[in-house]
Design a protein around this nucleic acid. Structure first.
Lengths: 123, 123
DNA sequence: TCAATAATACAAGAACTATTGAAATATAGT
DNA sequence: ACTATATTTCAATAGTTCTTGTATTATTGA
């Protein structure tokens, strides 16, 4: 993932309204929601919601599909998974012993496997 | 996690400079880096880096520890894991068959367990 | 074609964010 | 105490984003 893509995605999630919209869409799964429904559910002006949805779509955070005169929006979950991978892809690279992630959630498989103190992967 | 906390964290990652800083700190693990080192590595004015680090620290994205006249910054990975959990906590809640996440990465354990009810390509 | 509805586009102003340079604070070593 | 270094703070400015109201586009059904 490119840095620009990542910053746009994060920017999309940095407003309370957009975060509410995204989480609402995550809840709806593949059903998604049409724009007016989203605006009504969150009790926001439709044009404001449309403004934010446009940005979110442009960033790649949501997808949109036309249904007659409705626009159905869905969360783009695969993109989110890529984003998370991008964020942590360099986590403790080559140095699992430096990893800051609690072992229970181990970002890096090596941290769980090897008790190696400083180096020497043997295989 | 509260919405305000989440938006502040996302806002922290929505600038190229702050994303660079964060990923640099993720790479360094628990060694972290002192402010001047970060500025030098990314070839940025120290006061600008300080400005961004202050915001990142305030948002809870990084931690800081004083070392004599140096300030050592570290990525706050546990906070990031909480953020990710918050984002996806409602994912396909109660409706794993609606989950948008590819099965390989299954956000929700149920999706992996239960064979898809809507269309069943059996193993 | 006409009216109604869904959604987006546009424009204006307030509010916020980022960058720069200069100044201030604090620690370490002499 | 004095100087050098590390970092932060402050002020000014340029640029961007958010919200509101209004207007426009597009689809549906009579």
């Amino acid at each position: 993932m490119e840095k620009h893509t990542a910053t746009k995605l994060f920017e999309s999630l940095s407003s309370g309204i957009r975060l509410d919209i995204y989480r609402l869409l995550v809840k709806c799964g593949r059903d998604g929601m049409v724009a007016g429904q989203i605006a009504a559910t969150l009790d926001l002006p439709p044009n404001n919601v449309s403004f934010h949805l446009k940005g979110m779509n442009h960033a790649g955070l949501v997808t949109v599909e036309q249904e007659g005169r409705f626009q159905r929006y869905r969360a783009n979950l695969p993109q989110m998974l890529e984003l998370i991978a991008y964020l942590t892809e360099e986590c403790c690279a080559g140095h699992p012993e430096h990893c800051l992630v609690p072992p229970a959630e181990s970002c890096c498989p090596e941290a769980a496997r090897s008790p190696t103190p400083t180096s020497s992967p043997e295989s």
